[in-house]
Design a binder for these strands. Sequence first.
DNA 1: CGTGGAATTGAACGTCGTCAAGGACCGTGG
DNA 2: CCACGGTCCTTGACGACGTTCAATTCCACG
Lengths: 248, 248
Amino acid sequence: MSLSTSDRSLVELVIRRLNVLRPLSTEARASLEYALLEGLEHAGAGEDLISEGDPVDSVRVVLSGWLCRYKSLEDGRRQIVNFIFPGESCDSHAFLLPVMDHSIATMTPVVYAEIKRARFESLTRDARSLAEAFWCETLVNNAIQREWAINLGRRTALERVAHLFCEIFERLRPVGMVDANSCVMPVTQMDLADATGLSVVHLNRTVQELRASGLIVLRDRILTINDLDALKDTALYSPSYLQLYRRS
Amino acid sequence: MSLSTSDRSLVELVIRRLNVLRPLSTEARASLEYALLEGLEHAGAGEDLISEGDPVDSVRVVLSGWLCRYKSLEDGRRQIVNFIFPGESCDSHAFLLPVMDHSIATMTPVVYAEIKRARFESLTRDARSLAEAFWCETLVNNAIQREWAINLGRRTALERVAHLFCEIFERLRPVGMVDANSCVMPVTQMDLADATGLSVVHLNRTVQELRASGLIVLRDRILTINDLDALKDTALYSPSYLQLYRRS
DNA sequence: CGTGGAATTGAACGTCGTCAAGGACCGTGG
DNA sequence: CCACGGTCCTTGACGACGTTCAATTCCACG
């Protein structure tokens, strides 16, 4: 495995993000950085990294690319229950439960670092700040999951899609994947439909409604938000749940 | 505060439940039992224990009664994102994040134990098994939240309500609140509507559909499930997410 | 009794899903 | 070079599921 400078900068990104959740000690950063660089892996788009029912014995930290957590019903209906963005980890501590309750799939080519359970446990035992940072991540995930519940249960199609775009934008911003008012949107409308609980057809019409009202431009897999505040208004978006910034 | 024998048996229930998630050492049980008995509190029905935006500095463990986590939109639309049943804790570790992202309300009169943050942290520091048990609880909650996402996003009204009834029944069983094939259902149809993302009117019609098909009886706040397997079939219910039983 | 919350019913409407077809784009192979 | 197939996006027509509004019944409680 070769260690490019780009890999190193991706690892930096992970550490910076965790550091926002909990300030990390110098040793914590160093040992995490080492563990990440040691476990680098690549995956193509559209692969299942883990499937519902699988036992888990490692933690994966995403360095680049988009993934999603999803669940399926017997008859094929699928619900994406969350996205996973660069800097986030897939299933820290998931090994505390016997098996996965959901699946994780790549939506783009992905670079990630795999840390075996024993290694992860010794890392977090040695650095309390690291352990807390990963736990904070789990808690924030929990909060996002709750926000998705009200999104799916109580928002209209237009509000749901607007809300999803706001959330994606706000989650990509702190990891430097937002350029002024636009970001990549490397997923199909089918995926967006599965994330918002809509049919593809209706998702498409809803996106066009957002386009027609001038709030967004979505073309060539690039999302441009013309007026973020206005988009948040139509989404009834309240950002507190992301906990992107620490209480000072 | 008086310590009745009934309080003691409720505390036993909490410990038994945590013990299913992680085997607890004798000392862990003893110190937790002590902390719980020391922090007993009561609340009436329909009270907000914590509201979105509040800082948290304690953990509440529910000894009896039903609560719910919910989120609201500006215009009053409300989504119940989860229930909290006896034996479960409200927000263990929530103090790791600055403020609550959702509110917690009592749906019935409730008995709970409040453990201050410092106390909780020393408890879990001294007993690793206890810490892991509480973390497991958080992880299971996460899994439940994901199941609710697919419930709200991809199931029909009939499936949603059937699924909710299955889940409630299965979560109440291990804490001894199920009697043969029936359990209490001490909430209004308005609450059930807010939990399933339906209007009250349509929830009512859906419940009647379940009644008409002979699957359930719901009367006088008692839910009787005539054929649990059949109900699970109509709900497309797959129980693994509750992780009620440990891998041996 | 009378009051108020909860459950229930009816009717009309609307959002969203389904089905089906057409178009844009892209890589592959003849 | 162009035909071909595949995937994704888009549009139209229609119907169904679920919402809204409003009225009625039921029941516990004072």
